[in-house]
Amino acid sequence: MLRLPPFRLRTPSSLEEAARIVAGEGPAARFVAGGTDLWPNMKRRHQKADTVVSLMAVPGLAELRGDTGGNLEIGGTVTLDRVERDERVQTRFPALARAVASISSPPLRNMGTIGGNLCVDTRCTYYNQTEEWRRSIDYCLKEEGTVCWVAPGSSRCWAHTASDSAPMLAALGARVRLAGAEGEREIPLADLYRDDGIDYLGKRPEEVLSRVVVPAEADAGHCRSAFWKLRRRGSIDFAVLSVAVALWQEHGVVTRARIHLGAVASWPVGAEKAAEALVGRPVGDEEAIREAAKLVRRVATPMDNTDFLAQWRGVMAERYAESALREASGLEVTGLAPNHRLVG
């Protein structure tokens, strides 16, 4: 059996207590929600912890509700399966439902949470291996090693973001609530991330992601969105590329756009120039879409650290951006079908 190393499990019943335990114990403590990322990582000894603080008993953290302004509030420990099946998500934020439904597999979505998905560890072929394998190459920068095997001349880690909900929620302009020992703050979800494979979260370690707020202005009544994911199999596999787009329009003209990419950078990188290229142009202007797709490719920095060739993933970033933008613009989508899942 591949066993977990021993640790102490704490199950606090408030956010303050959860934050206080982690603040007090420092790097030796970690949060766990569904455990579908932390337990595999601890089994393979990527991540270590003397104390693991479960968030599953914190009251109110598993609530999914609409607030008075029409925003949708998803608590940090709401499972992916609940997000995917929620009628409000399906009708008001269909691309979010699709992004979440594309994650892992049915039992894993029944266990994994939205908070865990947004904080999921970055991934790399030289990292997501057994302990023996990693020891044989003397580890790498993301652990105790001194070299990045993906870019040996580089002083940084290029491990890629693995979350499928992050680019989608960033495109929709969602915000996240972070609860620390001294109270809560709310930031744009896109600001939660840093372009660094090791230090990928811009939050303090003791801060709990308590809630995701998806704004009313991003729902299907105001905004058209799409999510395209590329991977080898239609289930279980992580993305090697994902493209999330959101478009706002008035009288047939694009007034605002957001495009974020998953798995081709250390963070859910935003393609701001591409989005700008669409603004002021008619919705469904094929030339504008092609231009934007080319600009999307420029912000993708796929490295040879996951399945498929990096160069091809770059090519596909343009193709998938074009398809996602066509879908969101109501145009016919040709070319490769999005590998969301086995059933649409």
Binding site: G35, T36, P40, P107, N110, M111
Partner: peptide, 13 residues
């Protein structure tokens, strides 16, 4: 009643 991967969940929970 819902499917769970028993390898990724603690018995004590």
């Amino acid at each position: 009643g819902r499917p769970v991967l028993s390898c990724l969940t603690l018995a004590c929970q």
